[in-house]
Design a protein around this nucleic acid. Sequence first.
DNA 1: TCAAAAGTGTTTGGGTTACACCCATGG
DNA 2: CCATGGGTGTAACCCAAACACTTTTGA
Lengths: 226, 226
Amino acid sequence: MPFVRTELVVLCVTVGALQVLLSRREEEPHAGLLGLPGGVLRIDQDVSLEAAAQRVARERLGRELPNLLQLCAVGGADRDPRAPWALSVVYRSLVQPELAVKPGKRVKSLEWVAVDKVSDGGDLAFDHARLIAQAVDATREQVAAMEFPHGWVPEPFTLPQLQAFAEAVLGRALDKVTFRRRANTSDLVVALEGQTRGGAFRPAQLYRFQKPSHASGGGLLRPGAR
Amino acid sequence: MPFVRTELVVLCVTVGALQVLLSRREEEPHAGLLGLPGGVLRIDQDVSLEAAAQRVARERLGRELPNLLQLCAVGGADRDPRAPWALSVVYRSLVQPELAVKPGKRVKSLEWVAVDKVSDGGDLAFDHARLIAQAVDATREQVAAMEFPHGWVPEPFTLPQLQAFAEAVLGRALDKVTFRRRANTSDLVVALEGQTRGGAFRPAQLYRFQKPSHASGGGLLRPGAR
DNA sequence: TCAAAAGTGTTTGGGTTACACCCATGG
DNA sequence: CCATGGGTGTAACCCAAACACTTTTGA
């Protein structure tokens, strides 16, 4: 049976750009390079693949991860010199940068790196650059469709803040009017009554996301596959 | 390390409907039920996950499969009573029904079942009904976007044939004019010169798919992620 | 002549993008 | 007054759906 691992692609938005959490590898292979945090599946501790990803996150990052999405599985005979056959199941998580991640077991240091700095795939371990690119693509598609996975954007927020967030993820400017119209026509956001924010100029309206309203009508089997 | 398997969701279009290849299980668990063909990963024989899927296809179905697409990986402690922890990597393949599949090792009989007969998930082994639904969703999305994976539709074909194929996959009628316009405006098909088909009434123009033209301009990294 | 293949044309509608404006407000 | 938040309106564009209608062709 192969050597089975879980790799984590953790993304957040800071300083106006989409960033990925990487760790400097201490051990071979690829010692000294940056790589995705990950760990070995433990069949005596994990009841499922997602549970394994959460345990790895607790051990390596000091916390559980919201919004886990399975990206793919990669495996082969020459993937990892530590084992004759290695298989990795890759998960993506979207977090807020304020929530501290603490380096844990076997992890010396963690750092946020802008995703457009790693797109070339130069100095990353294994095929991690490709995995990150895949996670970024999937995430950008979601945001372009005005999907903001729960817990990723700090609530409450103003519409200019939400737009700046989307622009940071997509890496391009968006039209203000179109963005606001799309946010309002789809039942994405709800205005919080009365609340505003004190700022330098005119205060902005505060919003939160509309809950999915999980019992709306006739959706019987697999209500919203997309 | 867990027990690692590959499961195959093989789809084709016959008698006007999308069908999935299922085998009647001879052994426990779920003996007597229908299930997806699959097999155990052999790290001494398979160089990659996709190679493992192809070897399983050769052993169980007597042939290799075109157009393999990895759907997901599922795993857990209580997934399969034959092992304390079981992990399955699921692949989808799109084939033509004429290409004979011959039951092989450990497979008594294979049968095509219309996918809308298994959507409820009643009498299928494990969580195979859910896996089939996921494969069908992904395939319908592709066809709705006028993507016909290479080798799935017998070439050459007429546009009415291609439309009937798409309607069988989607399970609903399509507008003739819209379908033809979409096929022509996108560079999906190429008319074969002179050729027509002898039939009962006016013969139809024969077409084949336009090759992707893989060296068109500046697409450097990951040319067409969609 | 029939029925299917093929083609032309028009209308409608949704959705996005891109503008040009307007007003409101706190410092 | 100024910069930002918030809003209205409009035009252009693309695409898909729907429908009417004509022409072509082999049996």
